[in-house]
Amino acid sequence: MTDDRNAAVHAREARHERARMLGLALPALAVIGAAVVVPILWVLYLSVLDVQGHFTLGNYLVLATEGANLSVIVTTLKVSLLVTVVSVVIGYPLTYLLAQLPPSLATICMLGILLPYMTSVLVRTYAWMVLLGRRGIVNTMLVWLGITDAPLQLMFNTTATVIGMVHVMVPLLALPLYATMRAIDHGFLRAAASLGAGPVATFWRVYFPLSLPGLSAGTFLIFVTSLGFFITPTVLGGGRVTMIGQQIATAIATYDGFGVATALGVGLLAATAILLGFAMRVLRLDLMRAP
């Protein structure tokens, strides 16, 4: 039958097409495999080896029994959360302002926000030391204005660490949030006004919910990126704020082999995955939702 012969031809064509599509995806899959999947599996593998290269869960025992390691994970999560919250509190109104400006002016302002992101981490961090020190500009101003009698302790603590991190994290919120806010149709705001909503009601009931996809994307980016900070907490925390990156460096220097260091990494990965999974479920954040 001619029809049957054609069906076979079409089925073969469809198979070939799928194969060609897979071929096109191969380079991307290879890069992700080599850069993401293999290293994570390698770290997992190293975390269950002892110094002699035998299987052991001893590294995780160290992780669980040494209080310092747990407190570092807690500090890491706490600092990252704080950075995320402060970045949102500062970044949301800032981005909202940008989204109301004429596009050309907004682009210039956006470059200003992005500037710290393009500055060397060391320059940025030491600049904050100059600003936040006992004789730094901030304390000099506070005393001169009579807001405080004596200089505040702004350096070498969580405050300094969070300030230094927020500085570079705000752009990570501003970029996706700006894109989302620009895409919000002003027709919605007009409709809300015509239905009796004043400016405040229009913002909270219509604008803010519509900006949530950008806000959740930025929040997610900031939180995950904050977890891996190393130089900023080391310099601005002055030894009082130990995040996981620093602890991993210490573990490599202290113990033989990579066992404990990799176990720390796996611990952080697991804690992050659980926390974000929980947050996405409870807050119903959908990162992939189109604005």
């Binding site: 919605f188 007009r190 809300a192 015509s194 909503a197 004043g198 229009t202």
Partner: peptide, 17 residues
């Protein structure tokens, strides 16, 4: 302002939230 006029508006784009 619009929210004090008590008018119903049907927009070209519908503008359903």
């Amino acid at each position: 302002p619009p929210h004090k006029r008590n008018i119903g508006v049907v927009f070209q784009s519908y503008a359903l939230f």
